[in-house]
Design a binder for these strands. Structure first.
Lengths: 176, 176
DNA sequence: GTAAATATGTCAATATGGCTGACGTAATTT
DNA sequence: AAATTACGTCAGCCATATTGACATATTTAC
């Protein structure tokens, strides 16, 4: 870590281009392997990554509306439609009419859905736990902070609201 | 950071499921935004994410073979074929017969290719630099370490060889 | 020197997961 | 009563991946 360029005088340093490129590529390799385990499992069910996302987020917030799911996934309702239909058809998700607003079709996981969601998540939990199990300080905290700061400022409030309960660092003062 | 479960007695701690799920989701959100800037630029060229990957990796290792590129990207040559043909056709990449082995078609960026690669990389460099510009210790180093440990052990040697020059931490003792 | 393996390219068919645009229905809000 | 919202669906298109098959040139192995 010798070739850093000093920055705003606040103690932070500007990463060299070479070091930053290494991080860009590590993002690619890490993400590739991060999704490889669930991908394999999904294959045996005839599902894809899109199904995983739906299962995961519905499981995290049971009773969510279709619109909320679309906002999180950032896809169109037509794209979601096919995936959702398959998940419902195969008995992993069911819908319930909203009580307050009967236009809504609130989303829930069936028992099979909960099971599959957990099965898909297990290898990722293991991978992350092992990755952050470092002797040097609080690696998990710093990792979370950096990932959070990778999110575009315009999206941070939404992300923060979603993650919420698991605790995020105080919002920093950068305009990325 | 209260609800951690102590682990192997080496000072590391096991992350709670809740905290780990937050990291899983942050991976998703961070990666989504991380690729959003290049995606926008690529659209104006009629290119997609696949073209970006090819431009990036060829630019990082000019003269690489097609096979080496396939190994890095982990796609089939048929998938690469179309993308490569478009990049060559539009003048961003050119091929040169290998001198030692004349079967090889070594890959290089044209000047336009170099320019586009840099243009696509710039916002990602900025995003990462801002994300790791933290007062708390060496955030970049820790971030790189964690990302590296997210890579499957079976792939770490390849990744390490690739990243190499930018310096990676000593290989740790986990069997992820 | 012939046979086998390697590096690359290409044709064809298929799957997944996105997209836009248009239209319809039911329920809620104004 | 009219406008808006929540949702679903049909149809077509695009990008990116897949498998399998086949061809060509070159290098390596026996």
């Amino acid at each position: 870590m010798a070739d850093v360029i000093s920055a705003q005088g606040t103690g932070e340093q500007l990463l060299s281009e070479q070091e930053t490129v290494a991080l860009i590529e590590l993002m690619f390799f890490a993400y590739r392997d991060f999704v490889s385990d669930p991908d394999e499992i999904l294959g045996t069910y005839g599902f894809g990554r899109a199904h995983h996302r739906v299962l995961h987020f519905v499981g995290r917030d049971p009773g969510m509306t279709v619109q909320r799911l679309l906002d999180i996934l950032r896809i169109t309702k037509q794209s979601l439609g096919r995936v959702l239909k398959e998940l419902i058809g195969k008995g992993y998700i069911f819908q319930k009419e909203g009580e307050a607003d009967r236009r809504q079709r609130l989303l829930y996981l069936t028992e099979a859905g909960e099971e599959l969601r957990q099965r898909l998540m297990d290898p990722q939990i293991g991978r992350i736990r092992r990755a952050v199990a470092l002797p040097e300080g609080d690696a998990a905290h710093l990792y979370r902070t950096v990932l959070y700061r990778m999110v575009s400022p315009a999206n941070r409030e939404t992300v923060r609201d979603w993650i919420g309960r698991a605790g995020l660092p105080g919002d920093a003062q950068d305009g990325g």
